[in-house]
Structure formats: C-alpha cells, structure tokens
Design a protein around this nucleic acid. Structure first.
Lengths: 341, 341
DNA sequence: CAATTTCTGAGGTACGTAAATCAAAAAATC
DNA sequence: GATTTTTTGATTTACGTACCTCAGAAATTG
C-alpha cells in the first residue's frame, strides 16, 4: 500500500501538522525534527499524491503561451493546437491564456514577458528570440519562480527550464543526408532558401546542412543563402531568379516558411529540369507539392506534440517533479510521397 | 468555475444522491428524473473530475501487459519500457503486471488471455497474433468489460479498442521509397529478409514495400522473400547465400529482426560490392552498422512511446473517456547516419 | 383505499492532501 | 527562574467525488 502523510507522521513520531510543514517547506520546524521526518519520507518511499494535493489546493495551473502573430501555416497550426489544449483545460486543471506578439521583435517579446510577470502564472511557454534582452527577461521571470519553456525556437544558456521543439541542427543534417543520397553521386549545386538568418532555428538548420554536405558529399556545392523572410512572394522571386542565373542547380533546401512561393517557382520550370526539393513543415501546400512530385521530402515537426509536451513539462516543473526525457523529445518526421499520413 | 455534482443537483432540483445514481448508472431513478439530471449535466457542461473520482474510489488501474518472450533487442527494450512504467506506477495510480508468453504461439496467447480474464483487470495490452482463436478470446475479454489494446502488431476487425503501434504498410512504403530514391534510377534486384510471413506486421511491411516498388520504381525487381525467423544465424546464412547466387543484388530490405546476422553477411563482402541496406528498429547493432555505412537507413518505432501510449489509452478506455487520436499515433522514425539521436 | 414497490432526499464517511487555528510544550533569552 | 520565542501537537475544514444507510415520498399494484 502506498504510504500517506499519516504513515510518515506515525513513523517519524510527529504530528500530521509537522509533516505538512516539512513537505511544504513551511517554517517552524527544528532542524533535527525536519531531518527525522525527511528520513521517514525516504525510508517509506513516500511520494506526494499530486492528484489529491491539487484537489486540496483546488489548484488550476495557470499557464501563458506567448505566440508570434505569424500567418504562416505552421504558426497557425501551433495556435490551433494551443486552442485545442484550452478546450481540454477543464479536465486537465489548467488555465491557459494566449498572448500574441509581433514576430521577430525582441523588445515586443520582452514587453509581453514583463506584462505576464505581474499576473504570476505558474508557467510560460514562448517562441524565443535569441537576444540578450530576452535572456535577461527570462532570468527575471525564472527568478520569480515561473516555469519557463521555449517553444519551436530555443534560447540555450538561459534560465529557461526546457525546450519543446526539434533539434534543428539534426534537421539540417538530415536534409543534407537526404539531398546527398537522392542526388546519388551526381555532383551539383544546391540552393538554400531561408526565412532570416536572424532566427536561431534557421541558423541551426543551415549549420547542420552545410556540415554534412561538406563532410559527406564534397562534390555538392552550396550557393549563398536566399533570405525569403518567410514571404511567399519574395521567395518565389528569389528562387526563380536563382534558377535562371544558375541553371546547374540540382537541389533546393527550403529551411523556413514561404514554401508556396518556392513551389510556384519550381513548378514553372519544365518537369525534367526541376531540381530536387527538400522543405520543412507538412502543410497544405507542401503536402500537395509532395504528392505532385514537386517536393521530394518534407521534414516536419508536430505542433500538437510540441504544445502538449510544453504543457506536460510546465506542469511537472510547477510541481517540482521530474520530466520523462525520452517522452518529451520532439521528433523530426520525414515525409516522402509514399508515407504521407 | 467548473460545475460540480452539487451544481447539477441544484440545477436539476434533485438531491446529490440522485445525481450520483445517474452519473454512476445505479438503479432507482425514474426515467423522467434521469432525463432531467442528464439535461442539467449537458446544460452546465459538467465533466466528472477524474482525479477526485479516483481519489474517492481509491482506485488503481490494474493493467496486464502480455509480452512474447522474444530475445531480440526490440522486444527486450519493450519489456524494459514496461518495467519503467511499473516504476512510475505509484504516481500514476496504475498497477501493471507483465505476463510472458512464448513467441508466435497463438494458443499460448489465448491461454494467457483466458488466465488473465479471471483476475478482471481494467485493461490488457498484448502483442497480437492474427488468428481466429485469438480474435475470439479478445471478443470474450472485451465483452467482460476489459479494455483491450494491441501492441506492435495489430488485430484488425476484432473487439480490441485500440492499436498502439506503427502503420506497417506505411513503413514498407517508406522503405521502398527510400530504396528507390537511393538507387536513383539504377535498375537492380532487391532482396527482402523477413522474420516470418505468419506475422501480420511483417506481411504488411512487405505489402507496402512491394506496392510502391512496383508502382514507382518498376525497374527494380524483388527476389522471393527470405524467412529468417528473426534468428541472426539463419539470417546470416540466407543473406550470404542470396548474395552469392544473385550477384546483381543492389539492395536488401530487412523488415524483421535478426539484423546481427544480416550485418555480418553484408560486412563480409568487399566494401564496393555491398548492397544498399534498409532495416527496422534502432538497436545497438543496427546503430553501429548505420554509423559504419553498412546499413543505409533504419526505420524505427519507439518502444517507450508505444508503452506509454498504450497505458494512456487503457486508462481512457477504462474511464470511458475519449482519446486524443493525434497524440496516440505512433510515428515511424527514419534514421540515417547523420541524424542519429 | 390499503399494501406494496419503486424512487428520492438527507446525511454521513471516505479518499490523501493542504491549510488554518489554538493550545501546549520545549527551547532560548534575559 | 521568569519571560519570551520557537517548535510541535491536536483538531478542523475543505477539495470533488463515491458509496453507503435510512427514512420518507411517490407511484404502482391489488
């Protein structure tokens, strides 16, 4: 039978009130007594019944998701998933609020974080922007005891508790590996279409991509990066222009958003002169392009998984509980024409 | 504020006891009263607080995992993950027991199911074998109100509630797609190494593999299937023999276990005459072979995910709660040399 | 209409923990 | 040793639900 607080009180020879004081870090317990109680806790292997505790506290975890007001399909699906989680919040004892911020704007993000700080939520999930101000703000919130989880784009070496997102270096490496294998020894030139080199996840994908290409496929040359700002119009222009100026392009790696433009640019070429294309995020346009053979592979991160993982981790951190690391690793899905879900 | 049973009682103008009778399907409520209460429940959007209910019932979900005593690395890791879940069972209100059965033995499985039936657990997870007897047994257990989840290998059109495993047809299709792309137009002959065609997941993988190869890569020919019975020794012999007799083999798809033998057979050939190899399950040997370039791609299913998903689903089914479908879809991981975790 | 059966209400206890109060005991201070 | 401060015990209420008992009301039957 699982030991309860009563068992601990009896075993340590103290009253329930004292056990409560020790368990919840309340003052008024002598050092020796505290140690006696802690001894009994570990001797009996007591673990607090979180469900009962939450019931007693009539606790609801208050979490805030800070999301960029980005209109690309991936961010939209991320927001959808958060809304889905809000719909389930009744059953999960969570109260989730969404705060929108303009994209790629560090000071707006800092402002949002500061604004959220005053309401002292149990935790915050946010898409990080990698600047010192943001780091400082995160340190302040974490210092105030708020659980902090980065979403999609990380902020390493900061006070955040966890990152809910894919390993972007590994994603870039995977893309390069597929690109190299699909080219199958043919030497060639590869163009890279990114959103912005100011965003950490895009930088990391490029890093991984370049590293593997250089190491494993030295015959493949990378052109300078096209920055499409995740904008379909701009992306189409840039890609069309690159294809015109470099007829030898045999592959394109699109590591950001704005793939609608890329697809249009590729599609407008004759079928037998189209390059190999690897892109990110399975959305309506990339899915269709995959089916039509315009895109050859799509690397995907599951927004639903990221949101649910972030919530699980925020809960665990708010309770000071351990996280099942393997469960929270967000995987990179590789979709080909033939394994679409 | 979330409505409670008290709110329902007040709103329906009945007593708490009556609400309780309706909620828990106890007798002694007139039809009209029952409808009034149910009306109030849906009007207020009441959802039972499962945590509180479990506390009151001092319920622990009793689950049984029936696992084949197979000594291949994947089954071992599956058993490990179940043990891990047992370790967490204190915090999760679950009591999990493991029953071992001899592998590939339908009547042993049926016997185990029958034996488990008498102890009336809340749910059972088991690796299915696709025969009519097993189907009948599943129907009996499901009829007795036991939640049934198949693990790794499914039993479609049976009374099971859920399947926690990958889509094996999609896995085969993916393997074919990668094989075809990696061969990059070179025509060739592909050998398939399976465990046994009596197992459903192996059959389905082959089915998907063949379909895509025929449709998309008609120049690639498939040799008749080698049945290695998941035995490394036998697999090594079969593969070595096939490579000797068919020097034109340019690819091998290993859709079962026993990969240690396959790796040895491939390794013993000169490096420049080795075929392309795609295998299943990331284990110590396949991982090493991937790093060394002996294996070109590994399709993997995460045993930990499958076990945790099975438990979540069993819990939900035992409570009659809905399942978050997207969350429970087990993904096929594709590992290449460059994206090993 | 009386007797019987079927519903319903009121109330309590329990689950394991949190949080509070108040009194009593122990320790520290002067 | 008296006073103050700190520590501890005992007890209570609450969280939302389950489950039990018993009495009384309502409906059904004869």
């Amino acid at each position: 039978m699982k030991p309860t607080v009563h068992d601990i009180a009896r075993s340590a020879g103290v009253s329930l009130a004292t056990v409560d004081r020790v368990l919840n870090g309340r003052p008024g317990v002598r050092h020796v007594t505290r140690e006696r109680v802690e001894g009994a806790i570990s001797a009996l292997g007591y673990v607090r019944d979180v469900a009962a505790a939450n019931l007693a506290k009539s606790r609801t975890y208050s979490f805030v998701f800070i999301l960029p007001m980005n209109d690309n399909p991936f961010m939209i699906s991320l927001a959808d998933e958060v809304r889905g989680a809000i719909g389930r919040s009744g059953a999960e004892r969570t109260g989730i609020r969404v705060v929108d911020v303009p994209p790629f704007d560090p000071s707006a993000l800092v402002g949002a974080l500061e604004a959220v700080l005053v309401e002292k939520p149990a935790g915050i999930a946010f898409v990080a922007i990698d600047t010192p101000e943001v780091r400082d703000a995160v340190a302040r919130l974490a210092g105030a005891g708020i659980a902090m989880v980065t979403l999609v784009s990380d902020l390493p070496d900061s006070a955040r508790d966890h990152y809910a997102g894919i390993d972007n270096i590994a994603a870039g490496r995977t893309a390069a590996s597929l690109m190299g294998r699909f080219l199958a020894g043919r030497s060639g030139t590869v163009a890279v279409l990114a959103g912005s080199m100011l965003v950490r996840d895009h930088r990391e994908r490029l890093e991984g991509f370049s590293a593997v290409l250089q190491d494993t496929f030295p015959d493949v040359r990378i052109l300078s990066v096209l920055e499409g700002r995740d904008d379909p119009e701009l992306a189409e222009m840039l890609v069309a222009d690159a294809l015109r100026r470099h007829p030898e392009i045999s592959g394109i790696y699109s590591l950001g958003a704005g793939n609608r433009g890329l697809i249009r640019a590729v599609q407008s070429r004759e079928a037998d002169r189209r390059p190999l294309v690897i892109a990110h995020e399975l959305t309506a346009p990339t899915r269709a392009a995959l089916t039509d053979g315009i895109i050859d592979a799509v690397l995907n991160q599951d927004a639903g998984h990221e949101v649910r993982s972030a919530i699980r981790v925020l809960k665990a951190k708010a309770d000071g509980l351990p996280v099942i690391t393997a469960q929270e690793r967000i995987r990179i899905d590789i979709f080909l024409k033939d394994n679409l879900p």
